[in-house]
Simulated scan of single mutants.
Amino acid sequence: MHVGDYLLGLVTIVLGLALAAMATAIDRLVKRRREVRLDAVTILAAAFVFYAVIANLWAEYVHYHTVTAAPLAEGATMIVTFMITYLMAALVLPDEWEGKLDLRDHYKNVRRPLWGLFGLNALAVFTTNIVRNGAPKLSNYVSLAIGLAISFILMNVRPRIVQMAVLLGVLALQVWSLGNLEISG
């Protein structure tokens, strides 16, 4: 086995735990649906995080399935990136509650930490790309700027219509980009 196989295994475990956290939360929401008041922004945020987990899994498979050597710094930055992704997945939906649950209230309570983690994730991805590829390209700076802007807007802008518009716009771009996610090999 090569180092890429080990790193890919680690990626799969951490992101698999992220998916499991989301699936468990959804399972509990469905089972106790009579006690739950749904909220569109919370559902859009969960869809956004779900897509981020899947896109990361695909991207890392494409990268690591052929890697035979990697510096320790790459593994370390990658682990930080996926731990942050896991925390986002664990935070976006409630996993336990007593009595009635209003998803709008849940989102109000987790909005700032959730999108703060997303900003940290953008920085971690940027750092990982520098470790992997050396000096960053313009596209790396653009991706970082977009990620930090989205994080700042979703953390600090309160009107729900703005939150919804940003999440819908980003999700639309993500769905449009699905054609670029390919697995081969």
Rank of each mutant, 00 (worst) to 15 (best):
A135Q: 14
V157C: 04
H63C: 15
F152C: 12
Y86R: 06
M164Q: 15
M88R: 01
L93N: 03
S184G: 13
L72P: 07
Y64I: 11
M88A: 02
S143W: 09
M78P: 01
T128E: 13
G116M: 04
H106D: 10
I43L: 11
A18I: 03
L123W: 00
T85R: 05
G169K: 05
S151D: 03
G169R: 00
A55Y: 11
P113M: 11
L173I: 09
H63A: 14
V170D: 02
P71N: 01
V36Q: 07
G147M: 06
L117S: 00
H65Y: 12
T81M: 05
M155I: 06
L167P: 02
A89I: 04
Y107R: 04
A165I: 02
L138F: 14
G147F: 11
L44C: 11
I153A: 09
V11W: 00
R104T: 11
R160V: 11
Y64C: 04
L101C: 13
T77L: 12
P136A: 08
H63R: 15
G75I: 09
R33N: 14
A172M: 10
T81P: 00
M78L: 15
N109C: 09
F118V: 04
L93S: 01
Y51M: 06
E35R: 15
V41H: 02
P71G: 08
F126I: 10
I13H: 08
A59G: 15
L10W: 07
E182H: 12
H106E: 08
I79C: 08
K100L: 12
S151Q: 02
L120F: 12
Y61T: 12
D105I: 10
L91T: 05
E74Y: 14
N156C: 05
D95G: 13
F50A: 08
D39W: 06
R104G: 11
A145M: 08
Y107V: 04
L101N: 09
Y141C: 10
G134W: 10
V30W: 11
Y51P: 02
Y6R: 09
Y51A: 04
L91K: 01
D105F: 03
R112W: 13
G119W: 03
V162Q: 09
I84A: 06
